[in-house]
């Protein structure tokens, strides 16, 4: 098992609380299972070996008492677990809300990718990215979840449990990483053909690193340097790409697909389907249906020259 998408390797305050509760439930369950199964097997053995006629009245009475004790113990156990569960629920529910300094991030589900927006009171400072969330370690983050189409569910098990993205609603929940790392999350509510390939990466980093990242994301796309990159930008604007994707700084404003302003800074393509490198980017641009069948990105016809230029340009969008 790898620890980067696992409820068993908590890396955030919420997930740690849940993991703690899980340990309590697991221990209680093992004990209860052991006792009950032992009782079954002992009863079977005794009963199977019985030679005398059926049990007498005193042993019936003893059995009644045993059943009553068993029922009482079940009640007490369940009550204890209930108290533990409600207590953890309250703790997890209030974490983050107590502090005043926190971060807000909007996450919008699409078939089959995540739109991530860092809003700012000054609109030109808010940024849009996709399938990647950067958060500073030790700072509560409020995620505001919405969906553009069907129900999705955001699940980053190392940081917290899941929360659904429901049409017509905004669901809020809090995460807070307590150590730096890269964690993977995935859509947990069945959302159609490519439900399996709807992942995202969460990068928890120091406040400094986070601030640098944020500052960089606010900048417009870098100007092309080479001729190939320049031709690539032209290709981007003349091919169907521009109908769905936005790049800040050039005439590309569409929001149906992920914002590509800093696509080369992201580690994956197509919501965690592919590692972001030149090869997979070329394949993805030309024929997404072969790599993620059913995806809403169509195949694009272009000359090899156009493809090379386009990929050169996209690769430059650090």
């Amino acid at each position: 098992m790898n620890g980067f998408q696992s409820a068993m390797h908590p890396a955030g305050v919420q997930a740690s609380e849940l993991h703690h509760l899980w340990n309590i439930f697991l221990c209680v369950s093992i004990v209860v299972y052991g006792i009950t199964l032992a009782a079954v097997l002992i009863a079977v053995r005794r009963s199977h070996r019985r030679t005398e006629p059926l049990a007498d009245a005193p042993s019936e009475r003893r059995a009644t008492i045993a059943v009553a004790i068993g029922a009482g113990m079940t009640f007490v156990t369940v009550l204890a677990l209930l108290v533990a569960s409600v207590a953890t629920g309250r703790t997890v529910g209030t974490l983050g809300r107590l502090g005043t300094a926190h971060l807000e991030i909007d996450v919008t589900g699409h078939q089959w990718w995540w739109e991530v927006t860092y809003p700012n009171s000054e609109p030109d400072k808010s940024i849009r990215t996709a399938n990647e969330i950067h958060i500073p370690v030790g700072k509560p983050v409020e995620l505001r979840l919405a969906t553009r189409d069907v129900i999705h569910s955001l699940w980053i098990p190392n940081l917290h449990g899941k929360r659904d993205l429901i049409p017509g609603r905004v669901n809020k929940f809090w995460i807070e990483a307590d150590r730096p790392g890269v964690y993977r999350g995935q859509c947990a509510e069945f959302c159609g053909l490519q439900h399996a390939n709807m992942a995202l990466t969460v990068i928890a980093e120091s406040q400094d690193a986070y601030d640098r990242w944020l500052e960089h994301q606010r900048t417009a796309a870098p100007e092309p340097v080479t001729d190939a990159q320049r031709r690539g930008r032209q290709a981007f604007l003349s091919l169907p790409c521009v109908n769905c994707h936005a790049i800040t700084g050039i005439d590309a404003y569409a929001t149906a697909g992920p914002d590509l302003t800093h696509i080369a800074s992201r580690s994956t393509l197509a919501a965690g389907t592919l590692i972001n490198n030149k090869g997979s980017l070329s394949g993805w641009v030309v024929n997404p249906q072969a790599l993620k069948p059913g995806s809403n990105m169509p195949a694009n016809e272009m000359t090899p020259q156009q493809l090379n230029d386009l990929v050169a340009y996209l690769e430059s969008l650090q």
Binding site: V40, A43, S47, L54, V67, A71, T74, V86
Partner: peptide, 27 residues
């Protein structure tokens, strides 16, 4: 949550009764 957990009690009681039946009978 409370309702979901409490439903284990009637099922638990039945399981205990069966164990008692087995234990007192000749299986």
């Amino acid at each position: 949550t409370a309702a979901s957990m409490m439903i284990t009690i009637p099922t638990g009681v039945q399981i205990f009764c069966w164990i008692a039946s087995i234990s007192l009978g000749r299986l």
